[in-house]
């Protein structure tokens, strides 16, 4: 069994984005997704600092301090794009005008609680940015993360131990081992990497997994 690389996860997320979706990619791992979106998908990227329909600046392009995304990377607006102030940008989030937000996470619980902004440790200075706003407003919240921590501890849990970003908001989780949906009954495994037995996946997960009858091995699931 070989876990997916970070780029593999990004490819899988990109493939799952619906045609024409307005998408916000969170800071960190989710930023990789933009590399794998096909032009034919007509994805419109939104960034919280006030830009719609943009692309990363091609290598060698002159960086413009005034044209950045939320990760402070240089970007360029595409034809049909626009700039907006932060009040309107966050109205778009809270108001349900974004189709998908792809976010990183420390932990996700069985009912879709998201913890991704602060460890709560005394020496960890808290910073929230737009994490809570995004988690509250986008129509679909997808999480993209490693299945376990660097030390092998599960990140999918019954109850989050870190302070919450928002309760019961996550719809789908893409990890290096599996794709899971949050359902009223708990986390339902849709796909897992070839060669990974259900018992092995369960052993790396701290909440009871549901293995759907139709779960497929590393195959795209359209819906």
């Amino acid at each position: 069994m070989t876990p997916h690389s970070r780029d593999d996860i990004a490819r899988r997320v990109a493939r799952a984005l619906p045609h024409g979706a307005v998408v916000n990619l969170g800071i960190g791992l989710p930023g990789l997704v933009s590399r794998y979106v096909e032009p034919a998908q007509d994805i419109v990227l939104h960034s919280e600092n006030g830009i719609i329909n943009f692309a990363a600046l091609p290598d060698g392009g002159a960086a413009d301090h005034d044209s950045i995304d939320a990760s402070k990377r240089p970007v360029t607006v595409l034809p049909g794009g626009s700039y907006l102030d932060v009040a309107l940008s966050f109205s778009l989030m809270r108001g349900g005008h974004l189709d998908v937000a792809v976010l990183g996470a420390f932990e996700v619980s069985a009912r879709g609680d998201l913890a991704n902004w602060w460890t709560g440790k005394p020496d960890d200075v808290p910073g929230v940015g737009g994490a809570m706003d995004l988690a509250c407003g986008a129509k679909s919240i997808w999480v993209m993360m490693e299945h376990t921590t660097r030390d092998g501890l599960p990140k999918l849990v019954d109850h989050c131990s870190y302070p919450l970003t928002a309760p019961a908001v996550v719809d789908r989780i893409f990890t290096d081992l599996a794709v899971l949906d949050v359902t009223p009954e708990g986390l339902c495994v849709r796909e897992c990497v070839p060669g990974l037995e259900p018992a092995e996946l369960q052993a790396r997960t701290a909440t009871r997994l549901i293995f759907c009858d139709d779960h497929r091995i590393d195959a795209p699931r359209e819906r």
Binding site: N49, I51, D64
Partner: peptide, 10 residues
């Protein structure tokens, strides 16, 4: 100018 707008109008 571009994303330098951010918080300023508010």
């Amino acid at each position: 100018n571009k994303t330098a707008r951010n918080f300023a109008p508010v």
